[in-house]
Design a protein around this nucleic acid. Structure first.
Length: 585
RNA sequence: GGGGCUGUAGCUCAGCAGGAUAGAGCGGCCGCCUCCUAAGCGGCAGGUCGUGGGUUCGAAUCCCGCCAGCCCCGCCA
């Protein structure tokens, strides 16, 4: 299924050459969907921009293009409008053919990438020994969606969880563990360390208040770094405990991710330093080994360094990130590495990428991209906290979304005097609640800060997960009511567009391929949300105006096909966002 | 001091590889269920696109200055 845009582009190219000569070959026809349905389906904006080079009036240029343009298979006769827009209206027959092709395609007409790449998506990245909290929400949800889109496009995707499993904070944790829970260090032990947040706070309290504890903690850091047995066991026990807690949340969120934490790169750090030194990039400054980066100055206006090795010989996260870049390119064979990390780290990534580039560690054609996102704020516009002022745990956040979804559902069931099983209610509340949290996040442009509101995300109307799910459920309702098996409609059945709302719905459905490609390229899941919202709106308008089951044949079957195609599109779209659908709600 | 992000309707936000009268949802007001779930649909009201310049046939969108908010910047990650 060749995209409409691609076909039109070819025709415009030929028309330009025929009208104005071969030097115009390859000119961008500036084809975009129209801003208003009354202008048709697509508009070409190039005539205005050609006015100066061709020294002619834009409308005259547009007329000459049209005279040489052969799009009669696809479009009604093109029209020149306004200052020189060329408006194209797709033929009904063409739309119907495209819909048929889309129906027959399990990918719904979305072409896979021509050149599949190895894509690494680095996301989520919680810290060991700390609980996942609202701060991990966006990276986890956005990262998963980006990975899903890349996978759908046919890329070989490696989802990496760059967990914080190394660093000086482990000194106090190990020391505290050894003292309060020595059993955890025994062979084959599977002792539950308990609530890790409490554990972390206790350790931190002792570290801040008890000098002897602080000294033992510093020694434990050295032990850990040198591979000493007890310290290593304690570290592993802590990691294992965290891992279990993380996995529970990933399972609930339906997220697949592979752990490869900071400690993984420890054996590679010395070589990073060595290679930077060999290339003469490393400079000793105030006892630390640094690389000076361009485009940044410190408060005194002097060049700013990126610390590679600390005065005490230790490494920090810039070093780890550099080692990770080398490993991902050399060992994993990555073509594209996407770092789904908050916008606050943009300086860090700019600097690290700059150093890697200077060291020639990034072969041409390899793309390293920081995919930034804004912070989650409460409805007061400040950092999102509980009423008591604590960090919001991810588990609590999900629980609350689900319990609110459940309350809404139970009210509705009661109002409608329906009878539903506990299993039905439980499942529907979970899908709606989790879906709402994900959708609310993904539907905002990720670069802005995001104001978190349970009320808004769970609202039954507007650009929310429940609205999308409801549109899907409506289609399933038709199939139940009419005892329709969408997979076994007559093979020769076709969609015939008649009502205005059918045309609007069909045109929107056919934009899917173009849209998904944009999301895969630009990494903005909110484009997809916007698409699905508009699709659901157009479906609801159609549903409101056109009865399906009561229509006479062949209109009835045509409308059933349109419903089914809409539902499949919503399901696919939501799946790329990591959101499940329901048959009833 | 440097770097980054953000500023669009009362609120929450789209739109920003320039394009025809700036969009949506919520909230407000007015309509629509003998009919597939009204968790829906239609309509009305509401905007100096922070601000001042510039580029352009055309700027919310690109460039520069300014204002406001948030974030990051040498031995934490």
């Amino acid at each position: 299924m060749k995209s409409t845009l691609a076909q039109l582009t070819v025709q415009f190219d030929q028309a330009l050459v025929a009208a104005f000569g071969p030097e115009l070959a390859g000119t961008d026809p500036m084809l975009v969907p129209t801003t208003n349905p009354k202008f048709g389906d697509y508009q070409a904006n190039l005539a205005m921009s050609l006015a100066k080079p061709l020294k002619q009036k834009p409308r005259d240029i547009a007329t000459q293009i049209i005279e040489n343009l052969d799009v009669s298979d696809l479009c009604e006769p093109p029209e020149v409008a306004g200052p020189g827009f060329i408006n194209l209206r797709l033929k009904t027959q063409y739309l119907e053919d495209q819909l048929r092709a889309m129906q027959a395609d399990p990918r719904l007409g979305v072409a896979p990438a021509e050149q599949p790449q190895k894509v690494i998506v680095d996301f989520s990245s919680p810290n060991i020994a700390k609980e996942m909290h609202v701060g991990h929400l966006r990276s986890t949800i956005i990262g998963d969606s980006i990975a899903r889109v890349q996978e759908f496009m046919g890329h070989d995707v490696l989802r990496i969880n760059h967990v914080g499993d190394w660093g000086t904070q482990f000194g106090m944790l190990i020391t505290h563990l050894k003292e309060v829970c020595p059993k955890a260090l025994e062979v084959g032990s599977s002792v539950d360390i308990g609530d890790l947040v409490t554990f972390y706070k206790q350790a931190k309290k002792r570290f801040d208040e008890d000098d002897a504890f602080k000294t033992r903690s510093r020694e434990a850091v050295v032990d850990l770094q040198s591979g000493e047995d007890t310290a290593t066991k304690a570290w592993k026990a802590l990691c294992e405990q965290s891992r279990k807690a993380f996995q529970t949340l990933y399972d609930r969120l339906d997220i697949d991710i592979q752990e490869r934490g900071e400690s993984f790169y420890n054996p590679l750090l010395a070589n990073v330093v060595k290679d930077l030194e060999a290339q003469g990039l490393l400079v000793e400054d105030q006892g630390a080994k640094v690389v000076f980066v361009e485009g940044f100055t410190n408060k005194d206006g002097d060049p700013q360094p990126l610390i590679i090795q600390k005065t005490d010989g230790g490494y920090n996260y810039a070093t780890t990130d550099l080692a990770a870049i080398r490993y991902r390119i050399q060992q994993d064979g990555a073509d594209r590495v996407l770092y789904v990390v908050d916008a606050g780290q943009s300086n860090h990534f700019t600097q690290v990428f700059q150093v890697a580039a200077k060291a020639s560690w990034i072969p041409s054609g390899i793309e390293l991209t920081h995919v930034p996102f804004g912070v989650v704020q409460g409805e007061d516009g400040k950092k999102f906290k509980t009423r008591a002022g604590d960090t919001v745990r991810l588990k609590d956040l999900l629980d609350e979304a689900v319990s609110r979804a459940r309350a809404d559902l139970e009210n509705r069931i009661q109002a409608e005097e329906r009878q539903e099983t506990e299993a039905f209610i439980q499942n529907a509340a979970e899908v709606v609640g989790i879906g709402a949290v994900k959708y609310a996040d993904l539907s905002h442009n990720r670069t802005s800060n995001y104001i978190f509101s349970f009320d808004k995300m769970l609202a039954l109307q507007g650009n929310t997960a429940p609205y999308m799910l409801y549109a899907y459920v409506r289609v399933q309702g038709i199939s139940r009511k009419g005892d329709i098996d969408f997979d076994h409609l007559p093979a020769e059945a076709r969609i015939h567009l008649e009502d205005e709302t059918e045309f609007a719905l069909a045109r929107h459905l056919l934009q899917l391929g173009q849209l998904v490609e944009e999301v895969a390229r630009d990494l903005y899941p909110n484009y997809l949300c916007q698409y699905l919202f508009e699709l659901s709106q157009k479906f609801n308008q159609f549903y409101d105006r056109c009865s399906v089951l009561q229509a006479a044949e062949p209109q009835r079957t045509s409308r059933l096909l349109l419903c089914d195609l809409t539902a499949k599109t919503i399901k696919l779209g939501l799946s790329l966002l990591g959101i499940r659908v329901l048959e009833r709600m």
